[in-house]
Write a protein that binds this DNA or RNA. Structure first.
Lengths: 290, 290
DNA sequence: ACAATTGTGAGAAATTAATTACAGGACCAA
DNA sequence: TTGGTCCTGTAATTAATTTCTCACAATTGT
């Protein structure tokens, strides 16, 4: 037992000497276009390698598989594991805890979410969204739902420092129609809507859309119906081993956006932050150290 | 048609809007484990995505394929082309963006934070904290600060469903002394305090400590002064390339705790969640699908 | 010439894909 | 609320493909 898991490619190369001429020819053909060629029909593979069908059947059995289907299944598994990316699938994060501990299972799921989210995100759209949010000439409305209003508020708090003209609108409230009265052509709505999509949020988005405002949507992989009205949708994968969904990945996107917007507006932000510091100093709400 | 070649992944995402709910569910399932899952048998794919066989057939046709086999062949071609091309650069997270893009720099920093946090966490202490939070015989107070009150509220919302006797106390408020009147020996305070530690929060912690309550503290690597009063401190690394700190890692710890507490209280939680669902159904605040 | 290997062709068995009709839900608009 | 529309899963059936095996002939290398 050298290694817990060796790739099928390794396995083939290892057995290469035990194979006969036609079998070797087949094996090399598989390795040549690996792993795609091994995932097609048996006859195609045979034809591509210029060997006969029984040769293929014989070889996979020599490799230790029950049949070609078995071999294919293993190939698919390997492909799935590889696609997961640079970090091993079963890495233990909290080293002091067993891998079945909730900390490790949860962390693994979140890392997976992050990887998947980043793999599918369109950086151009992301940059456009940041530019919209950074544009101080547009009034900015931030809308959250039942769960997501915490994320909305997190964004709101930071943007308040970065720029003026920001309003936080809780969609689960009777008062949100009032906010729309002021919304004009060109203003920006940042809307959060994840699973258990809320009718209120959709209504609000529709009204905002009707007023020709720009809409930036934070949603999950299943996409809130709001996305049809949104100019830019940023989707996160949010599945975790829990009865609830995870907000961590969305939070990551959010903080990335805050960071980007802060950079875009740095001149303004620096002054405003300094003022804020001064006010804090005066009020003694915070401690300098310890 | 902008560029000559688009991947099937792109093609799916592009058509995502034209798909119906179940079809989208299927499409996302394919993207989730791409491209391995699409190379297996149709029935396996359908089962894995929790959709029916005809749905798969309908979707691939909407994507412009003659049938599932046709779709698979295209997938294999793409896989073959990828393998031939430049070696996959898995250094970056958002593959479509350069490694200097804020998304990649930020994500890398957050992953680093997670790794570091998990490396230093004491799982026994974590479990003890979960047990305290899960204990329904103790009244639970949740305290957040200027920034962290969003995290506090996130925890509060979930625990409200899991168990009774939970109170959210904003430390930046004139009213918090009132809450302490009711705090008794054995009650639990969950306190959030990260950089720019707040005097109010410390005062509140001192008073809570004087009343012999248990204190669970979420803080950062520099540790809030509250930690001297806390029974259990859970520290996160929160540094990111930004003018602010990151809450993502703390959020991860938080969600792990919610998941653990939910498991500990599953009997109670299940019933309460069911009731909640029923109420949602009646109020029609949420939509079932799409 | 002998032994091992390989291909041929054919056919059985198993799996898989594709289609249909229908009933139950969800959504929507009046 | 209600009727209508669209979507979806179930189940059953058929068609098609694919895997697998066999016996035997052809080929190759020794």
């Amino acid at each position: 037992m050298t290694d817990a898991k060796q790739t099928i490619s390794d396995r083939i190369q290892e057995k290469l000497d035990d194979l006969t001429r036609a079998e070797r020819q087949l094996a090399l053909s598989i390795l040549e276009n690996y792993p795609a060629s091994g995932l097609g029909p048996l006859t195609t593979l045979a034809k591509g390698a210029h060997v006969s069908v029984p040769t293929v059947a014989r070889m996979v059995q020599k490799l230790g598989y029950k049949g070609y289907s078995d071999f294919q299944a293993d190939l698919r598994d390997e492909l799935g594991a590889i696609a997961k990316g640079p970090i091993a699938k079963h890495e233990t994060w909290a080293g002091a805890a067993p891998s079945e501990h909730v900390l490790n299972r949860f962390t693994e799921a979140v890392i997976d979410n992050i990887r998947n989210t980043m793999a599918h995100i369109d950086p151009v759209a992301f940059d456009e969204a940041c530019a919209l949010v950074a544009d101080q000439t547009r009034h900015l409305y931030i809308v959250g739902g039942r769960i997501t209003h915490t994320l909305a508020e997190y964004l709101f708090m930071h943007l308040q420092v970065i720029r003026p003209n920001v309003t936080h609108v809780p969609s689960t409230s009777n008062t949100w129609p009032h906010y729309l009265l002021n919304a004009e052509d060109g203003d920006v709505f940042v809307i959060f809507d994840v699973r258990r999509y809320e009718n209120n949020t959709l209504k609000l988005a529709e009204l905002a859309h009707a007023r020709r405002t720009k809409i930036v949507l934070f949603t999950d992989q299943w996409r809130s119906p709001v996305h049809r009205l949104a100019d830019i949708s940023l989707t996160s994968q949010i599945i975790v081993p829990s009865a609830w969904d995870s907000a961590t990945t969305t939070m990551l996107l959010l903080e990335s956006m805050i960071s980007a917007v802060q950079t875009l507006n740095w001149e303004t932000t620096r002054d405003r932050m300094q003022e804020l510091e001064d006010i804090f100093d005066k009020t003694k709400l915070f401690r300098k150290f310890t």
